[in-house]
């Protein structure tokens, strides 16, 4: 019904406008909880996706999760086997938890995450993947026992989640490039050329800078990635999705 979808839209726009005035992460959690409860969501988490050397707790931005579940999830490092997280990495579109594929027989740990979540009332869910620049990846995952998800409600939830994520990121990262800190755009650019078989001299010619500068960028990238040489730096940058080909 048109009237009803108009209400979702109003709710979404009001919530987005409100976010700007919120001064703390706790206020953002409360605002999200208030709006999302209208759609049946009881719990949610906003988290970055950890690189292999980061832990789950290090990358969580905001959460309204059952405390027991958070502890179990961290203890068993479920983020590395969670099918929701896995799908986040390969899509930019929001999806329902039931759309995230996994093989119950072949991936017992994936099945375990999904089953144990249900024990905490997280039966159905919806997830928004975030793909920033310079390889920054995050997700906003929300759940409840009975969700009101339809082609009418999803766009409103999608939009609110996107803006709540942004507000959380601003409030929690005074340095707005927190995700970009890993490698500078120039370092990424140079590693991409290296991945394409270019020497430091070739790359210098292409970018109009000296070979020495290129080498300095590569050295800096090696240090950040804890790589012993350019080859390993390229491999790690690809592995962590800091660069693509």
């Amino acid at each position: 019904m048109a009237g009803q979808s108009f209400d979702y839209a109003t709710e979404a726009f009001d919530m987005i406008d409100l976010l700007d005035s919120l001064a703390s992460p706790e206020e953002v959690v409360d605002a999200v909880a208030r709006s999302f409860t209208l759609f049946g969501f009881e719990t949610f988490i906003i988290t970055g996706l950890p690189h292999p050397r980061e832990s789950f707790e290090q990358v969580v931005l905001l959460r309204k999760w059952p405390i027991g579940w958070f502890e179990i999830y961290a203890k068993y490092d479920y983020i590395r086997s969670d099918p929701i997280i896995r799908l986040c990495k390969t899509t930019t579109r929001p999806f329902e938890w039931s759309e995230a594929p996994y093989d119950r027989a072949e991936e017992p740990k994936a099945a375990e995450v999904m089953d144990r979540a249900v024990d905490f009332g997280m039966r159905e869910g919806f997830c928004l993947p975030i793909h920033g620049i310079n390889g920054y990846e995050a997700c906003f995952s929300m759940s409840g026992a009975h969700l009101d998800l339809s082609p009418r409600t999803k766009p409103a939830v999608h939009l609110m989640a996107m803006y709540a994520f942004e507000r959380a990121r601003q409030l929690l990262a005074p340095n707005p490039q927190s995700g970009a800190k890993i490698l500078t755009p120039r370092e990424c650019e140079i590693l991409v050329w290296a991945a394409n078989g270019k020497s430091a001299a070739d790359t210098g010619d292409i970018l109009g800078i000296t070979e020495r500068t290129v080498t300095a960028h590569i050295a800096s990238a090696c240090q950040k990635l804890e790589a012993v040489n350019k080859t390993q730096a390229v491999a790690r940058a690809l592995q962590y999705k800091l660069i693509g080909l």
Binding site: Y8, A9, A12, F13, I16, I130, H131, G132, I133, Y136, A138, P155, A156, H158, L159, M162, F165, E166, R169, P176, Q177, G179, A180
Partner: peptide
């Protein structure tokens, strides 16, 4: 949207996603 936000753009939605 998150990319624009990350580069510091202030973005006001004119409607819901379609």
């Amino acid at each position: 949207l998150p990319r624009w936000h990350q580069v510091g753009f202030k973005v006001r939605p004119l409607g819901l996603p379609t």
